[in-house]
Amino acid sequence: MGPMPRMDRKKMGWLLLALLLLLTGCGKREEPVTGGHAPYVEDAATGKGEYIVVGFSQIGSESDWRIGSTESFRSTFTAENGYYLIYDDAQQKQENQLKAVRNFILQKVDYIIVDPIVETGWDAVLKEAKDAGIPVILADRSVKVEDEELYTCWVGSSFEQEGRSAGEWLREYLKKQGREDEEIRIVTLQGTLGSTAQIGRTEGFGKVLEQEKNWVMLDQQSGDFTQAKGQEVMEEFLKNYDRIDVVVCENDNMAFGAIEAIKKADKTCGPDGEIIILSFDAGRAALETLLDKDINAVFECNPKLGPLVSEIIRKLERGESVEKIQYVEEVYFDSTMDLEQIIEERTY
């Protein structure tokens, strides 16, 4: 190859510069994530005897819910409470989580908490933890392993219970309005089909639906847990069905979309409107919408798993046995409550 033509060399320079910029950009991004726990590692290794050392592998920080969950663990496992927390953000990758758990084992932590991204592929690393004698507590999502004894227990939400509470709330609400014998026409905006939350909430609500003879489920469509899709599907429901009494939205975002669609169609919703809206998750934004009287009730999906996990660890410390499956306490909110106070205290 002969010498590079002048022009090409210039171009090459630009390309290199662009690449350099890109690389430095990447470096900056990684820093706060991975750089954070290097000093913790040493502390854990030297062993601060009076503290209970806990390693926590979180999925990432993709939603308000997740951030609320991280916050809950961070504020529970503090030095004042007698804990030493090693936090690891897996950035949505299972391999990072496996690495994190192995690190925890090497650092000889007392307990490992994992919120597993996917259900499979955990046998080997959980076995390693068990062999090292470190109890593993699963939070939020669960795992599928051949030997259930590989982990100590699972803590999380009962989506089915959430769905059932929604149905029961609706029954009470209709009774109060004297509509218990009327035909009630319901549509559901489902979450991403096949997700745990979608299956549980649909099933839970379905159980109440079965008991109520005069409730009619007109249609169920997936809105993919997003506002835009929820709105699109709701617009179509409104065109296909002349009268809709209840919209069950399997998360807050789809509820926001549904409200937009309903307003566009010149209909009203909420406690003072013609359409009853039920939503799940109960993030701060949904509570504010509840305060604006656009939603009738929201059913919490509690991200505050920290205190319950802490309770379990205390029990294990005392040598007591714990239940394999533990549900976190979840509540609901409707417009009869003192919402301003609740919103004030809401962190997510």
Binding site: E62, T226, Q227, A228, Q231, N253, F256, G257, E260
Partner: peptide
């Protein structure tokens, strides 16, 4: 237009 529709920036879905 897309973000104004949902009055938010949902980076993962827009």
């Amino acid at each position: 237009v897309a973000s104004s529709r949902i009055s938010s920036a949902d980076s993962n879905n827009i």
